[in-house]
């Protein structure tokens, strides 16, 4: 496999052809925030919190670090006024469904990026689901069960995570969906199988 050279935040690094910016940055010890990413899962590119600026041939644009493959001579900036502004807005947008009291990674990032989780929520006061639809639980479940007990239903703002009742019996209570949840929504796995209701899985035992 070819080795490429690129620059992240001014530091040069060699990376393998099949790496993403996120992975290359990690090698340099540069942290890029993620909400829908997990090392062991395929990149999904839904939360966009990992947005970074890249420059190639004099043109700069913003891409998702978790999906963007490294290229030779790429110049990446992981923090800037623009990037911070985007991350702050994304967190405030995510809070519309996650709720201003979201936990986990959401809470941590909110303080790092000065995001006021009630700012945009106050404009769109809907019942918080505590879910940002990052899909981590769904993808983790597919890995664990070779199928999926949970999945997405609906489109747009009606999109939600649901349990497929006919698949409940394949749940092994592996707890992985709980481990990967970035908002603290899945606080624990549900009761002993089979799951009666998705809400039991998702709402968890507080």
């Amino acid at each position: 496999m070819k080795t490429l050279t690129l620059k992240i935040d001014g530091k040069e690094i060699e990376a393998k052809e099949d790496m993403t910016i996120l992975e290359a940055a990690e090698k340099l010890g540069i942290q890029i925030p993620t909400l829908c990413h997990h090392k062991k899962l395929e990149p999904y590119g839904a939360c966009r919190i990992c947005s970074v600026e890249i420059e190639t041939r004099g043109k700069s644009r913003i891409v998702a670090a978790c999906c963007y493959p490294v290229k030779n001579n790429l110049n990446v900036t992981t923090r800037s006024t623009q990037i911070d502004k985007i991350r702050k807005t994304i967190l405030e947008l995510a809070a519309v469904t996650a709720g201003e009291d979201a936990m986990g990674e959401m809470r941590k990032l909110a303080s790092e990026y000065n995001a006021d989780l009630s700012h945009l929520r106050s404009k769109t006061p809907i019942e918080p689901t505590r879910c940002i639809l990052c899909g981590l639980c769904v993808r983790r479940c597919i890995e664990a069960t070779w199928d999926s007990v949970i999945g997405f239903i609906g489109r747009g703002t009606k999109r939600q995570i649901a349990l497929y009742p006919e698949k409940a019996s394949i749940c092994t209570i592996c707890d992985y969906c709980h481990d990967v949840c970035p908002t603290g929504k899945i606080t624990s796995t549900g009761p002993d199988p089979p799951f009666p209701q998705i809400d039991d899985v998702l709402a968890g035992r507080e």
Binding site: R48, T89, I90, V96, L133, G156, T157, R159
Partner: peptide, 18 residues
């Protein structure tokens, strides 16, 4: 566009909603 958004990514789904 809010009706047509697939809802996968946060900027589009929540941005349009707000």
């Amino acid at each position: 566009l809010l009706e047509e958004s697939c809802g996968k990514c946060i900027p589009c789904r929540e941005g349009l909603r707000v």
